[in-house]
Design a protein around this nucleic acid. Sequence first.
RNA 1: GCCCUCGUAGCUCAGUGGAUAGAGCAUCCCCCUCCUAAGGGGAGGGUCACACGUUCGAUUCGUGUCGAGGGCGCCA
Length: 557
Amino acid sequence: MKSHLLQLLLPVAQSIHPEILANSIQLDRPKSIEHGDFSSNLAMALAKTLKKNPRELATLIIEKLPTSPFIEKVEIAGAGFINFYLNEKARTFIIHEILKNPEVYGQNTSGHDDKGQPQKVQIEFVSANPTGPLHVGHGRGAAIGDSLARLLKFNGWDVTREFYYNDAGAQIDNLTKSVHARCHNIDPSDPAFPEDGYRGEYIVEIANAFLNKSSIECEGKTIHASGLIDDLESIRQFSVAYLRHEQDQDLNAFQIKFDVFTLESSFYQNGHIEKVVASLTQNGFTYEEDNALWLKTTDFGDDKNRVMKKSDGSYTYFIPDVAYHFNKWERGFKRVINEHGSDHHSTITRVRAGLQALKIGIPESYPEYVLHQMITVMKGGEEVKLSKRAGSYVTLRDLIDEVGCDATRFFLVARKSDSQLIFDIDLAKTQNSDNPVYYIQYAHARIAGVLRQWGGDIHQLNHVNIDHLKSTQELIMVKRLSEFPEMVLHAAVELAPHTIANYLKDCAADLHSYYNDTKFLVENEDEKLARLSLIRATQIVLKNGLYLLGVNAPENM
RNA sequence: GCCCUCGUAGCUCAGUGGAUAGAGCAUCCCCCUCCUAAGGGGAGGGUCACACGUUCGAUUCGUGUCGAGGGCGCCA
């Protein structure tokens, strides 16, 4: 509908001002229904360059505008807005569009290449090290990352979800030492406990399972504990498998599945690390100082150079990161999005710098980043800082157990990622109007209820003429539904799934308002079917929108 | 000190170079003989942190100030 109007406007605009470009014409959705379905600031924009009165220009534009089967009227308003009001034919067209192919309504092909094929995009998210249960920050990353994946798929991209983790390195040594200490019944109050060790209760569980010679399923393999109290290698393998397994269960409970798990150690084993270091050195971006090998990241906008190989001969995390992103590029991902906590901010410049220094034509903006800010968990008016199992932080599992998967996902994805989030457990738990998740789900369930009571075949609604749906609420409802595809595109372009959550709240509000005002199951058959087709279309949009957030759309509540 | 993000109603947060800046909660009033009241309607509540610029028009863009958080490691 929007492109239809643009096609009408463009020739007119060009006849007045030949140099105007198609993408410079704005066609917005007015906030208020009084201002029509679409609004253009064309006259005001032209007034500036042509030095003419915007209202006069608007009159001229409207006179020149060809007739359209979908437009009821065009009006000038305010300082020179041109407002378009769609007619009943357009509204029927929109509703039929939704009902015809419910599951694809809102989808587009903006992710396709020139040949019409989906382009590959990889989204890396969560990427927690296997040193403890997932915390709420990982939960926010999981909710945002998975929703982004769903959104991009809806926009025609071929999406791969990936989880990267470090299974060697200093943090894992720490984990091993901590479990080892607990095997010997050394607790964190004991001076013999590792200084930077993990102090949570889960370490005791792992130690006990290890001593009992348990087995753990992890990523298709079974890991057996040797049970030998000083077998550090077995402790390490078992602990990593144990925690990876637990994280998988948490993600499962959060209804998130990954396509690929990548281990940091794989880049040491397959020689990628050496290759990258050799290439960086060959390109002349490295130097030695204080017995360490440095990369001149300042050549690429960093504020200081970074160590890549420590004086003890081991690598910093930074080189495996570069190797990993080089690997993503080589696997054919011309687009990569990393979802991380905002504490990863400092790595952006240097990872990109490392990739630039490889000189193999990777774009400067590769990879893209979506960073989320910190979460404060509130309960009973007080900040919750720790959980029993993890010790020092609140786990994702705590939230899921307490408020459920749907509410947790919704709350974590419904805020702009770069603002700090207060997660109010009491609010997320309430099952009433205070809680936006239930508000939206209730709208969906209410519609399902009406359709159940009607008892007819929903396919009967596909070709209903809705011409005489003309109440303000009905106009608002149709307008809202027609905006959904634009919202989906916008959310994907901006990498901002929270805009979908806002849209759904508005859409649900429109429905509840309509529901209270109008009876659907009326005597008059035409009226009844018209209203049912409208709410059925609303149900579809709510369902598709909730799907994009990873939230269920219940038939009953 | 430098870098990034944020500052909008009492609270939690949306939003936009344009029309009267929105929603939920909280406060007050009203609506079930009627498809789910887990709902709806209404009232009150704002110097869009502050200042100065750019613009026909700034809450939105720019600069500065103040305030909050995060990052500045041979940790990941």
